[in-house]
């Protein structure tokens, strides 16, 4: 599991970071993105849907957990 600190970054930067770094975890493992841009709460789940990854929800404010499925 890795955590990406994208606090202070504007969208689409947190989503770009997620797309680049998800390859660094094994299938089935999770990546947590820390992002406070207001678009992240919408765009990270949307990315998961488009790229067939699993959105696990927001465990705490400004944190978004994603499980690699492929």
């Amino acid at each position: 599991m890795i955590e990406l600190d994208c606090l202070g970054q504007k969208c689409p930067l947190p989503v770009i970071a997620l797309a680049k770094r998800i390859r660094d975890v094994e299938v089935g493992e999770t990546v947590t993105v820390l992002a406070d841009d207001p678009a992240a709460a919408n765009d990270i789940p949307a990315w998961c849907r488009m790229k067939k990854q699993e959105y696990l929800g927001s465990p705490r404010p400004h944190a978004f957990a994603v499980r690699r499925l492929s």
Partner: peptide, 21 residues
């Protein structure tokens, strides 16, 4: 959001749950 004066993504795209950037 980066094109809006509010710096928030469109409430319509958010309500639909589709990509906003």
């Amino acid at each position: 959001s980066c094109t809006a004066s509010t710096l928030r993504p469109s409430h319509v795209l958010e309500a639909m749950g589709v990509l906003s950037h």
